[in-house]
Amino acid sequence: MIDLPVIQTHRLCKSYGSVQAVRDLSLSVRANCITGFLGRNGAGKSTTIKMLLGMIRPTSGEGAVLGNRIDAPQESVELRRRVAYVSEDKRLYNYMTVAQTIHFTSGFYSDWRPETAESLRRKYELPSDRKVKSLSKGMRTKLALLLAVARRPALLILDEPSEGLDPVGVEQLLETLVTQSAEGTAVFFSSHQIEEVERIADQVAILEQGRLLKDVSLDDVRRCYRKIDLVFSSQPNERDFQLEGVDSVQTSGCQMRVVCNANAEDVIERARALDASEIEVGPISLREVFLSAVSETSRALV
């Protein structure tokens, strides 16, 4: 099996008037992987996802999902046949019951698995004859998830799936995503819950102000990313630490924190040369990677 990227975009842009929601986004999402899509509110995550699904037209650039061009209407229909999507607001038709919603959705897909749908419905405790209107947000999210995974999509795209779920629901969701991945579905999901992404993702893409800041594997983050806390006898100069691999440098008085994505040794070497009185190297959590990357960008743009 050749693992072509399931999502591939090249310099994708979307602007609304003078506002650039997505800028020059070149993203490649691998098959057989769980990819987390991080970014602040308004960073352009939903806009990107909607462009992939043909709901929004790109201003420029191109993209393909499972080899189908996103801006060609007929190919867009074809790609939606093989992509499952759970939208940000998880709204379903209020006038349908749970059973009607499942019946309705099943009619569109030849690979629908009725037994899977039924077992998930029981697991998620969704009452068949309840109207969607009277479901809580958590239940609606579970129903939307059920509709997405009751077939065998090649790619599963979820926009903030854990929002509105209780802790048990979140565990069920993550377990479902793992199961999907084990069955060979590529999973691409956006989230604000960095810890969830950190637990199950293989790869992480960080978007900020419409730009792709990082596209890294979590194994690499754990293996190579380090935060180095330094103490000097006088105020250090940030410029001394603009080395290769350094992501961000933060100073407060005589203290300094350097976050690097590689070459921690060089930073330590430099610190020693500058007579640092204390050097402490530690691993860095994804949350810190995210915050340091985002703060660095907003500083650069001021």
Binding site: G54, M55, P73, V77, E88, T105
Partner: peptide, 15 residues
């Protein structure tokens, strides 16, 4: 306006 559009448009049918 009611928010179901992202579900409808994600179905494999043309507009």
């Amino acid at each position: 306006a009611t928010g179901t559009i992202s579900f409808t448009l994600a179905l494999p049918v043309s507009r």
